[in-house]
Computed example of a mutant assay.
Amino acid sequence: MIKATDFYWINEPQNWSREGGALSVTTDEKTDFWNKTWYGFERFSGHFFGIDVTGDFTFQVKVRAGFSALYDQAGVMFLADQNHWLKAGVELNDGAPAIGSVLTINHSDWATGIFPDGVEAFSMRLTRKGENLRLQYSTDGKNWPLLRLAHFPTFKKYAVGVMCCTPERGGLSVQFEDLWLTAAIDKDLHDLS
């Protein structure tokens, strides 16, 4: 069972609130998580609200956000330290929402895909099994396509939670709902339920 007191902020935003099981955040200006690749810069200023984890687990959350500017983003994050992390969710890219993920092992990569326009909310599910991460998303809470399968090295400590960033502005309103953490959902890779 997740306790609200077990969560903590990395880069706490100026404006946020938690009511019941929902977390509301308004992003600060020019926030991001990124390491080196293509642009050359390093950023670790995005907002992360997480909980320390050990062993195998599944973390899931429902996200609502008013994406309107380039690189507005919100979703889940798994991290060991400033140079080893995974973030994933929806990001506004070239005027349209994209579903994507960034895996950073010293250098960030970026994988994106088309996301349906007009979707008011989406859910993210991250499962850790050993040194493997399985990342899924859903627009209806029933069908969970695979977004990414990745190796993540072993560290002494990890955290998982939600993130949001606005590299080009501030003021993105995000609502995170139905956060839950449980033992790893160990379904077949092609079981999309």
Rank of each mutant, 00 (worst) to 15 (best):
W85Q: 08
Q82D: 15
T31Y: 11
N93T: 13
M77A: 12
H107M: 14
V76I: 01
A80Q: 05
F44Y: 15
K30A: 01
T27I: 10
L103T: 15
S193H: 01
P13H: 04
F59R: 08
K156L: 13
K62E: 12
K142E: 13
K30Q: 04
F67L: 15
V61N: 02
K87D: 08
V174Y: 04
R128D: 09
E29F: 13
N106F: 04
A4E: 11
F57K: 05
V25P: 08
L147E: 10
G46E: 02
F59A: 08
A74K: 03
F49K: 09
F33L: 07
S68F: 09
W38R: 15
A150L: 09
S24Y: 00
D72G: 05
D52Q: 12
R43S: 13
L133Q: 01
H84M: 07
N35D: 07
L126P: 00
R169Y: 09
S108H: 14
E42F: 06
L179C: 02
G89V: 10
G161K: 06
H84T: 13
V102D: 00
T27E: 13
E177G: 02
L135E: 03
I2N: 02
N106A: 05
A88H: 04
W9N: 01
S123Q: 13
T26L: 13
L172R: 08
K3V: 15
M163Q: 12
T5R: 15
M1D: 02
Q60F: 04
V76N: 00
G21W: 01
L189Q: 06
R43N: 10
S45A: 06
R18P: 14
A22P: 11
E91L: 08
F48H: 07
P97I: 02
W144E: 04
R18T: 12
L86T: 10
L149R: 03
P97K: 07
V63A: 00
D52P: 09
T5G: 01
Y158A: 03
Y137K: 08
W180S: 15
E42I: 05
S45P: 05
R43G: 03
D81R: 11
A159C: 12
W85V: 02
T26K: 14
H190E: 02
L149T: 06
D56S: 01
S17T: 14
E42Y: 10
N132V: 09
I99H: 03
S108A: 15
L70W: 11
D109Y: 02
T58G: 04
E42L: 03
F152E: 13
